[in-house]
Simulated assay, not measured.
Amino acid sequence: MRTRPVLAVALAPAVLLGLTACSTADEGGADDAASATPSASEACAAGDLPTLTEGTLTVGAGEPFEPWYVGEPTSGEGFESALVYAVAEELGYAAEDVEWETVTFEQIISPAIKPFDLAAYQTTITEERAEAVDFSSPYLTSHQGVIVADDGDYADATSLADLEGARIGVTAAQTSLDAAESAWGDAVEITPFNAAGDGMTALTSGTIDAMVMDVDQGVAASTVYFPDTQVVGTLPDVGEPEQLGLVLDKDSELTECVSQAVDALEADGTLDELRTEWLKSDDVPELS
């Protein structure tokens, strides 16, 4: 297991903000379908799952940052840390049977063999990525948020038009780039950054006027890591809703069981509870 010191959360926000960057019953009726379909815990017992290490669920994650991870991933605090332990419990694993592996975003979405059974790293489900990896059922529908400096020229922006002419930062090769291009076209100057934290540093130094990233990550960035900034709104969705999923090897034997676990947590209200506890973006308006 490889993890990073908690102190890094306080000392290196630019690094920690590295990237952020659903079945129907047949005609027999819902009751018949429910009785014929075993639950995740019945069909996917921990002792029977072909994990990398027998009896252990190895989970990949990046450098911990809020709201996804509060402190080390092992803490169980933060949306994705709590989600992983809830999925593990649904599959029959005790907390001590969960091992964490620090990985990069590139490792997660590449077609190479993975050093983990599943990864929880704010990974948007896309058709292109699904050609290289498997995704679980989605556990969160997300949006792209716009962050500005409290004392900047765009602090009072309430619409897309208010930001025309601005220098907008995005994370290269992430969905924030597509969302920004769709929202403004040539009306803004878009600057890609290797990591969201690099863009936030540029924002606070005045190099750019706004930064686009996942809104939940943006709320944490503006309240924890870069307190002199604020989220002014979200961008309109591009195409299908942007959803996050747990990542597994392509054609993994675990994918169906992990998806069943996520579906069970959605059905019993656990995911709603985790979203309410850890994500603070419900009141952020959409820019139009």
Score class of each variant (00 low, 15 high):
residue 212 V to E: 07
residue 116 F to D: 06
residue 178 D to W: 08
residue 95 A to H: 11
residue 195 A to D: 02
residue 140 L to Y: 14
residue 117 D to R: 06
residue 123 T to E: 03
residue 212 V to N: 01
residue 177 L to T: 15
residue 204 T to D: 04
residue 186 D to E: 15
residue 227 P to E: 07
residue 226 F to W: 12
residue 193 F to N: 09
residue 124 T to F: 10
residue 153 D to T: 13
residue 195 A to F: 04
residue 112 A to W: 00
residue 148 V to R: 02
residue 141 T to Y: 04
residue 127 E to Y: 07
residue 221 A to R: 03
residue 213 M to S: 12
residue 218 G to W: 09
residue 208 I to V: 15
residue 110 S to Q: 00
residue 163 L to F: 11
residue 140 L to K: 10
residue 132 A to F: 12
residue 146 V to Q: 05
residue 205 S to W: 12
residue 180 A to L: 02
residue 162 D to A: 14
residue 156 D to R: 03
residue 134 D to K: 09
residue 155 A to K: 08
residue 102 T to M: 13
residue 193 F to M: 09
residue 225 Y to V: 07
residue 171 T to W: 07
residue 152 G to H: 02
residue 187 A to C: 05
residue 110 S to R: 03
residue 189 E to I: 05
residue 222 S to K: 06
residue 109 I to F: 09
residue 170 V to E: 08
residue 179 A to G: 06
residue 226 F to K: 05
residue 187 A to N: 14
residue 212 V to R: 08
residue 107 Q to S: 13
residue 155 A to W: 09
residue 122 Q to N: 15
residue 165 G to Y: 12
residue 201 T to R: 14
residue 195 A to G: 09
residue 103 V to N: 01
residue 142 S to F: 10
residue 117 D to E: 06
residue 107 Q to P: 02
residue 147 I to S: 12
residue 160 L to P: 00
residue 157 A to I: 04
residue 143 H to E: 14
residue 166 A to T: 12
residue 204 T to Y: 02
residue 225 Y to F: 13
residue 132 A to V: 08
residue 182 S to M: 09
residue 123 T to V: 15
residue 110 S to L: 11
residue 167 R to H: 13
residue 151 D to S: 08
residue 103 V to I: 14
residue 112 A to N: 14
residue 128 E to C: 03
residue 114 K to E: 05
residue 187 A to K: 14
residue 117 D to H: 06
residue 185 G to R: 10
residue 104 T to Q: 09
residue 166 A to Y: 11
residue 156 D to Q: 12
residue 101 E to A: 12
residue 215 V to D: 05
residue 173 A to D: 15
residue 134 D to S: 15
residue 103 V to T: 09
residue 108 I to P: 00
residue 129 R to S: 03
residue 199 G to T: 10
residue 222 S to N: 02
residue 149 A to G: 15
residue 149 A to N: 06
residue 134 D to W: 03
residue 197 G to M: 10
residue 109 I to D: 02
residue 168 I to N: 06
residue 201 T to I: 09
residue 122 Q to R: 11
residue 166 A to H: 06
residue 225 Y to P: 06
residue 225 Y to T: 03
residue 227 P to Y: 03
residue 127 E to P: 04
residue 128 E to G: 09
residue 219 V to H: 10
residue 156 D to I: 02
residue 227 P to T: 12
residue 122 Q to L: 12
residue 209 D to K: 04
residue 222 S to D: 01
residue 226 F to M: 08
residue 108 I to W: 00
residue 187 A to E: 15
residue 215 V to M: 02
residue 113 I to L: 13
residue 170 V to D: 08
residue 222 S to Y: 07
residue 215 V to G: 03
residue 188 V to E: 07
residue 165 G to I: 13
residue 226 F to P: 04
residue 203 L to A: 07
residue 134 D to A: 15
residue 116 F to A: 11
residue 156 D to C: 10
residue 166 A to P: 10
residue 203 L to F: 12
residue 196 A to N: 13
residue 220 A to D: 02
residue 169 G to V: 01
